[in-house]
Design a protein around this nucleic acid. Structure first.
Length: 516
DNA sequence: TATTGGTTGCGGAA
DNA sequence: TTCCGCAACCAATA
């Protein structure tokens, strides 16, 4: 009996460093590359046109690469748990290969698919290639619990050693489709946005696909001095003509770019430069380690995208106000720096990491006191690089719920941006309504005299909103709320620790004495 | 149990 | 440009 294999793409939308593809193609008589458009991921109210456009571009690029190798990509539609059993049978499939995925939805889906494959007599192979290391391996090496600081995570990674080298490129010629799959090919082309219920075009300037990913990586890596001097916290969040970071995140999210290839290229440059380069956590390599760290947390901490039931997350009594959340989402807070960032998010599906910090702090502990989960949902909708684990982790970080606890460090919606965008070029670009405001007032337009507002053709309170809250006042109030929540968490931990008698040790002090 | 250090705050003083 | 106050955080380590 011959081998008819499916390579099932979900993330990992690339031919390079793709061990699942190699396993499927090896000694196969027939290779069927498929992507399944799962209705779960195609909800226009939950997932913006920009990210879906990026996905479809990535699929088109993948299809072109397969065609160049005598094959093609079939885009099927429906629930994978329903589509796959059908094609197993119709196409005479013997092997199913796909990249391992640690997100909760994927884990559940893939477990179900494995069972269905087993029932159909289909052999399943699911290698790790979305991260540098296998999260399960890292977890085991750390005693079954994820580290909760970047420092300890970096130590763990160093102890594990170099990540696997990128897999070999696939052969120039790939096995043909199964004959029965061939008959479905015409109906399985990469669809247009309109075909799947979206507006005809998005507005992001970033183009999806492996080809674009490799070109972008080559572009940013060509400046080796820049690579070696990279320090993330020193980047300029207001740079939008050429962003201060690589913008490889959407390509890593969809797997158009292999993290192991990127990592290997970085190490090569570092070696060439004789070790004179920045270090994690701030270096470019450090950025890959953050991704690795947060992916491990997402893979191993139950309910990682929620506050309740999330054992590492501080329980904070946020008050979700739908009007506040909407105003924040729609650039109506009255703080131009915040509103410009949110406009960039909606328009481009991407903003600099520090810009994300500004708006995340503003929505949660800084100003609006809304739940980080609400912000997470908005980012998940609009970001082209939205990643389940990274999004949850960063929102917990910024809201000082997990990982980070110095809640008295609050970003100012006025001062923070001013350091970078002195003349307000970023604000003018993303908030054209303010484009004629003088630089002096552009971060605080409500302080401009009426005559200035008239001259700028923008009346505050009419053409652009007044500030939704007074930052100086609410940030102080919120700090006190944070302190109360932290104290309550400490008290709860102390009570929980001594109650139940499970631990066996004598009572912990109910509360640690604090020196004054 | 105490110490160390943490990718990325702000505003004012020196 | 660097430092201090704010009001005092906490995981990892020794």
């Amino acid at each position: 009996m011959g081998k008819t294999a499916i390579i099932w793409f979900r993330k990992g939308l690339r031919l390079h460093d793709n061990p699942a593809l190699l396993a499927a193609a090896r000694d196969a008589d027939h290779l069927c590359p498929i992507f399944i458009l799962d209705p779960w991921f195609l909800k226009p109210d939950k997932i913006s046109v920009n990210r879906v456009q990026f996905l479809l571009e990535s699929l088109a690029d993948l299809d072109a690469s397969f065609r160049a190798r005598g094959s093609r990509l079939l885009v099927l539609r429906g629930k994978p748990q329903e589509v796959l059993p059908r094609v197993f049978k119709d196409w005479g499939v013997t092997h199913l290969c796909f990249e391992s995925d640690t997100e909760p939805y994927a884990k559940q889906r893939d477990a179900a698919v494995r069972e269905l494959a087993e029932a159909a007599g289909v052999e399943v192979h699911s290698p790790v290639s979305h991260t540098l290391h296998d999260p399960q391996l890292l977890l085991a090496r750390n005693g079954g619990r994820p580290p909760l600081t970047m420092q300890s995570f970096t130590k763990l990674v160093d102890a594990v050693g170099a990540p696997p080298a990128p897999a070999a490129d696939p052969p120039e010629k790939l096995p043909p489709l199964a004959p029965k799959a061939e008959t479905e090919a015409a109906a399985a082309a990469v669809p247009s946005l309109a075909d799947i219920g979206y507006p005809p075009a998005g507005t992001t300037p970033f183009k999806g696909g492996e080809t674009a990913a490799l070109a972008r990586m080559a572009d940013y890596l060509s400046d080796k001095d820049w690579v070696c001097a990279f320090e993330k916290p020193k980047g300029n969040p207001a740079a939008f003509v050429r962003p201060a970071t690589t913008v490889l995140s959407p390509y890593l999210k969809f797997g158009c770019l292999s993290p192991r290839l990127f990592h290997a290229k970085l190490q090569q440059i570092y070696t060439e430069k004789n070790g004179k380069h920045t270090q994690p956590p701030v270096s470019l390599r450090g950025q890959l380690l953050w991704r690795e760290f947060f992916t491990l947390c997402g893979a191993s901490i139950p309910n990682f995208d929620r506050m309740e039931g999330n054992a590492v997350c501080k329980q904070i009594p946020w008050v979700d106000d739908p009007e506040r959340i909407k105003a924040w989402e729609e650039s109506r807070t009255g703080y131009p720096w915040i509103d410009a960032i949110m406009a960039q998010l909606r328009q481009q599906g991407w903003m600099h990491h520090l810009a994300r910090h500004s708006v995340a702090c503003f929505l949660t502990r800084g100003d609006l006191w809304c739940s980080w989960e609400a912000g997470q949902a908005v980012f998940d909708k609009y970001l082209i690089d939205a990643d389940w684990s990274l999004n949850a982790a960063n929102w917990q970080w910024l809201s000082a719920s997990t990982f980070f606890s110095q809640y008295f460090r609050v970003y100012s919606p006025i001062s923070f941006g001013k350091q970078y965008d002195k003349d307000g070029a970023y604000i003018r670009h993303f908030l054209p309504v303010l484009k004629d405001f003088p630089s002096k007032y552009i971060f605080e337009p409500w302080t401009a005299p009426l005559s200035v507002q008239q001259q700028a053709g923008c009346i505050i309170g009419k053409d652009y909103p007044r500030p939704i809250v007074d930052h100086a006042t609410v940030s102080k109030e919120n700090m006190a709320r944070m302190k109360a929540a932290y104290d309550a968490a400490k008290a709860a931990a102390a009570a929980g620790g001594s109650a139940g008698g499970g631990g066996g040790e004598g009572g912990k002090p109910a509360k640690r004495a604090r020196k004054k």
